[in-house]
Amino acid sequence: MMRDASVLETSAQHIPVLRLMGLQRVFHQGTRDINVLAGASVDVWAGQCVALVGPSGSGKSTLLHIAGLLETPDQGNVIVAGRDCATLDDHARTLIRRAEMGFIYQFHQLLPEFSALENVAIPQMIHGRSRRDAEVRAQKLLSSMGLSERLDHRPAQLSGGEQQRTAICRALANRPRLILADEPTGNLDPKTSELVFHELIGLFRSEGVAALIATHNLELARRMDRVVVLDGGLLVEIHPQSV
């Protein structure tokens, strides 16, 4: 029997979009073991922007790769929208990434031979949306980021900030529940970084996604909803203003 849509929605509100439980990850260098993650745990809820901070080399990228189902932890669980992904095969993990997640990197990774509009439309078409519908969604997202006059420009014709804003739109194109971002403004000058960050957070909140954002920029981290510090392989939540 099908459940009422309102019941499903209410139930989903009580389940974190991302739950990381007791993650452990050890790297071996010769005879030396490096415990990058030693029981890291965190919940990320819909509509929240969570900053992930920590010293260089503390394992932030590793944590994001595991959360994004790109790596497998030695121990622990990754639960996405209530589904435990620990025992899934590669194909099932790929489907979850495609349906539930969007990724933003320090470098935009746009397809150089396609326009901004096409870069945002193509992931939707791969996901099964018609070209027309994909382009309508792409235009809406790009316009919301101030790029309505740049739709037909290829990445080489865009500034660094415009390229990164296009990449943010691409990450949101398929309406993911979860965004994972690794230093999304780290390759930008301070003024452009501030502008892109402001637009990024605004768009995330308007879309209602959960976001886990690794950043070295503590000023930006203070303006997120929550801050978790990765140190010694564990995640500790602190008040944003204490960063």
Rank of each mutant, 00 (worst) to 15 (best):
T94K: 12
G76E: 06
T62Q: 14
L117A: 11
I66Q: 01
G202Y: 14
N174F: 13
R131N: 01
G68W: 03
L234N: 11
D84M: 03
L188Y: 02
A138W: 04
R93H: 13
L110M: 04
E183L: 07
E100M: 09
N217I: 09
A99T: 15
C49N: 12
G47E: 14
S159E: 04
S6P: 00
M125K: 02
M145D: 02
H65W: 13
V78N: 04
D231C: 03
R175G: 08
I213M: 09
A51V: 10
L178H: 15
T166F: 03
L69E: 12
V44Q: 06
L203R: 09
Q109A: 05
P123S: 09
E207Q: 15
I201E: 01
T31I: 06
D74W: 06
D133W: 01
S206V: 10
P184G: 00
G76N: 06
R150E: 05
G54F: 10
V243Y: 12
T31K: 10
N77I: 12
H153Y: 03
H239L: 12
A81W: 09
H14E: 06
E113V: 00
R137I: 02
L200N: 03
D231N: 06
K191Q: 11
Q24L: 10
R19V: 08
H28C: 02
R175M: 11
Q139Y: 05
S242W: 08
A210E: 11
V196T: 03
I238R: 12
Q109L: 06
A221T: 11
C85V: 14
E118G: 04
W45E: 10
S58V: 07
D33V: 01
A67V: 02
D4S: 10
V17R: 08
R129G: 00
A156I: 01
A134S: 05
Q241Y: 07
I15C: 07
V228D: 05
I15R: 12
V17Q: 08
R205F: 15
L230C: 11
P16Q: 09
L158M: 03
R98P: 05
G202E: 13
F114M: 08
E194F: 14
G22E: 15
V78E: 04
G160E: 04
V42R: 13
I104M: 08
Y105K: 00
S115N: 00
R223S: 15
G68L: 04
S41M: 14
F204D: 02
T215I: 06
G22W: 12
